[in-house]
């Protein structure tokens, strides 16, 4: 079931086109990583689907139109920064969110416990560290048990400690079975948390799909031997080796995912080749992301 369907979404800021006929489908229960370089249109997309930015053209529909204008009541979202009343404490701020969402909730201890903020619940928002502010924002998104959670750069500006805290909370939240859309620069994080990714560049969707399917699961190997010509000939003859590229004193190639790199070592030994270098490298989301965004 689709929770969000975006069709031909277009938005310009003056002469700059932020979104250019963007199409995207988000299925229920998945954790989507929305990736793209700065200025690619991620936040603009989220701003439009959350009702704070206007669109020039195109359509989007939440929950197949099931909730009409009430769809945002079923979404918990943080866009860019945690936004709260600085002179109110955590409980008052969460109470305001609950009132907006028409949720009858008088005790926010459980939600604050989830983000490790219960001990500071009576402190004013302006006295919080950036990490605590971000965690309170995550707590606010959980009010009313929304069907969809949206996080835009949730670890932006945080120190390593803050990133670690927010990452823990996000991992917990994401494991609850909600549909999550997370725009982030932290590709390693997206790779760990998300089941799906959508890569946007220049306001156009470049690639989307499951993280596993998007990544080339073949291991990339850097290999060298005293007899480089013999090594190259051996690699070219093996059916499970592809993309053989010779670079200076190293050969790069891909080893099919069903083969172990150690088998390559054994084969070279059988052929009388003495390997001087053998490094296996799994392709990461970052590699794929850089490749997709570079080639365009």
């Amino acid at each position: 079931m689709s929770v969000l369907s975006i069709k031909n979404l277009t938005k310009s800021y003056g002469k700059v086109r932020a979104l250019n006929n963007l199409n995207l489908e988000i299925e229920a229960g998945n954790i989507y990583g929305l990736l793209g370089p700065n200025g690619s249109g991620k936040t603009t997309t989220l701003g439009i689907i959350l009702g704070i930015l206007g669109k020039d053209n195109g359509t989007y529909e939440w929950f197949d139109g099931e909730y009409g204008n009430q769809h945002r009541m079923h979404i918990g979202a943080i866009l860019e920064t945690p936004n709260f009343y600085p002179y109110l404490d955590a409980v008052d701020n969460l109470d305001i969110v609950a009132r907006i969402k028409n949720v009858k909730q008088s005790n926010f201890d459980e939600i604050l416990e989830q983000v490790n903020l219960a001990h500071r619940k009576t402190s004013k928002f302006h006295s919080y560290s950036l990490g605590m502010k971000q965690r309170l924002a995550i707590a606010a998104t959980l009010i009313g048990n929304p069907k969809v959670l949206i996080f835009d750069e949730p670890t932006n500006g945080l120190d390593p400690q803050g990133i670690s805290e927010v990452r823990d909370v996000l991992t917990r939240v994401a494991s609850n079975g909600n549909t999550v859309i997370m725009a982030s620069h932290l590709l390693d994080e997206v790779e760990k948390i998300c089941s799906h990714v959508a890569i946007i560049k220049d306001g156009v969707l470049r690639k989307t799909g499951q993280v596993g399917a998007l990544l080339n699961n073949d291991a990339q190997v850097h290999i060298a031997a005293e007899d480089m010509l013999g090594l190259e000939n051996m690699l070219l003859s093996l059916p499970y080796i592809s993309n053989v590229v010779k670079r200076d004193h190293i050969i790069e190639c891909n080893v099919s995912q069903d083969k172990n790199v150690s088998e390559l070592n054994a084969k070279a030994f059988q052929e009388g080749l003495l390997l001087t270098h053998l490094v296996s490298k799994k392709q990461s989301l970052e590699d794929e992301f850089l490749e997709i965004t570079k080639e365009l």
Binding site: L50, G51, A77, L79, T81, N83, F84, Y85, I100, N102
Partner: peptide, 15 residues
């Protein structure tokens, strides 16, 4: 200034 206006809309209040 505190962006609570935009957050109110994001949280579900219509304009």
């Amino acid at each position: 200034a505190s962006k609570t206006m935009r957050q109110s809309i994001i949280n579900g209040l219509n304009r």
